[in-house]
Nucleic acid binder design. Sequence first.
RNA 1: GGGGGUGUAGCUCAGUUGGUUAGAGCGCUGGCCUGUCACGCCAGAGGCCGCGGGUUCGAGUCCCGUCACUCCCGCCA
Length: 591
Amino acid sequence: MHAYRTHTCADIRTDHVGETVRLSGWVHRMRDHGNLLFIDLRDHYGLTQCVIDADKAVFKEIEAQRAESVITVTGKVVKRTPDTVNAGLPTGEVELVIKDCKLQSAAGELPMPVFGDQEYPEDIRLRYRFLDLRREKMHANIVLRNKVIASIRKRMWNAGFQEFQTPILTASSPEGARDFLVPSRLHPGKFYALPQAPQQFKQLVMMAGFDRYFQIAPCFRDEDARADRSPGEFYQLDVEMSFVTQDDVFAAIEPVITGVFEEFAGDRKVTPAPYPRIPYKEALLKYGSDKPDLRNPIEIQDVTEIFRGSGFGIFAKMIEGGAVVRAIPAPGAGGLARSFFDKMNDWARSEGYAGLGYINIKDGSPGGPIAKNLGEDRTATLRNQLSLGDNDGVFFACAKEADAARLAGLARGKIGLDLDLLAKDEFRFCWIVDYPLFEYDEAEKKIDFSHNPFSMPQGGLDALESKDPLDILAYQYDIVCNGVELSSGAIRNHLPEIMLKAFGIAGYDAETVEKEFPGMLNAFRYGAPPHGGLAPGVDRIVMLLADEPNIREVILFPMNQKAEDLMMGAPSGVSPKHLRELNLRIIDLDA
RNA sequence: GGGGGUGUAGCUCAGUUGGUUAGAGCGCUGGCCUGUCACGCCAGAGGCCGCGGGUUCGAGUCCCGUCACUCCCGCCA
């Protein structure tokens, strides 16, 4: 007989009755009746109830074990009597009568129980991640992650993509997020950087003639965490293709994404290909965001003209000063108490905005201060434009365009949640397209790349030479699902003159560009295929499929919000010898 | 760096208007229990009420500061 097991804890059924079997696993739960003792034995695969009574020699030894100890039990499989069958357990018709038991590893008193679905503080969960991962939900999330990645790989390989590995130790580049740096021992004072993404490498793979590349790629960015952003590192399905248009990229990736989602979505509905394509500008207007949650039926409209020169003086005056007014319908809210509207206004103030105006239509008659001051005609025009019903409400965000769009978008989300308007159990995908190539950086007071500096401008070199930089669009796109940005991508620029010109507009002179991007620029000069790609976030895909609000729930060993690994104790200090080897010295800037 | 929330037993939480000795469930220790599957019953141990300062006759409770965790803003091409 095998030293540890003849079956797993999920295997035993009525066919095994009478057989002597051996199981190994964790003591999930123990029920001690004094002269009769039940153990639920758990392994990766499932649970089997084991039973022993007091006459057996090993009884005392077993009775002394704590939950989560690892044991090996040997004994005969018996059928349970009908009144003791556990219908909630796949192995619930049988049990193992323990004849022999061996303790493999004793567990101490637990800092957090594995059994049950009680919630625990995250710092304890992260410090004892190995215990946390034994719990049913976490275990299932990580198994799901494995399946999703396997499915992605299969789909990509079947679509003719090849998987390559790119360097982890590479060069820092001037744009983008903060880098993680690794000191070089052989080159004192010089550093490697961990890649923020294999962006330049995957483009160079195209220039090397490989045509269709993908990788489940680790990416490293030294940026602060969010619920959907793990600090330090994350994984992307990194994709690049040669001789493609934007439509070719969409056509290649949509079946992969839809396929993976359909495979693991269960009863949840998935947007079929092709996904709706929403220009960036339209998204900001209609949804107040470039990552709209399309499960929310509310659409924002511009109503600036209705308020221009109107009796509602606050808005009229702001419009003269360059503000716009965005209307956010709240279907069915007209019948709600005044407090609903007041609370929305308080909420807007708490978000740092001046406030949110409103009209509440009750049984066909519009109420509130705006309706009163705007006058009947204009209010009627408004109702008509927004197709408001007899008991709808509508909120107004008045501010400079970017702020108004942002506030309207936040209000759209809040109204959708508060009024429970979101289509449940659906994955709604869309492409956001036509991003601007540049944006004005208020902090630095200069024009900078808005997304990816390697994107191809729409209109090519002509556009760069003739248009206002802020009006130039790029072949740049995002996949958005349920308000989560899954991926950004672009058709890349493959011409050195466009690269130099575009970087020039962003304030990098030719010499700097030659120095910072020698590999790319050189490759452009020796025959570069037109190419493009994208990089959906793998962690976020799993997070959506697992229906988890926090990305750490789908990562085996995540760091906490302050980018510390509480289990391994990272980051940590290093020895003076270690530092000396690397030609480093720690200095105290405050001293 | 800024804003919000939380912090009471190993864990999850309650704790009234500032008032006697700070409670419950789970877990832990001991005892009883031969059909449980959140087993049951009895007993017990376990507290720097995050930390520091202040107000007060008196602070878990009020005030100030600070720390930890978390959510958000900044940041994330």
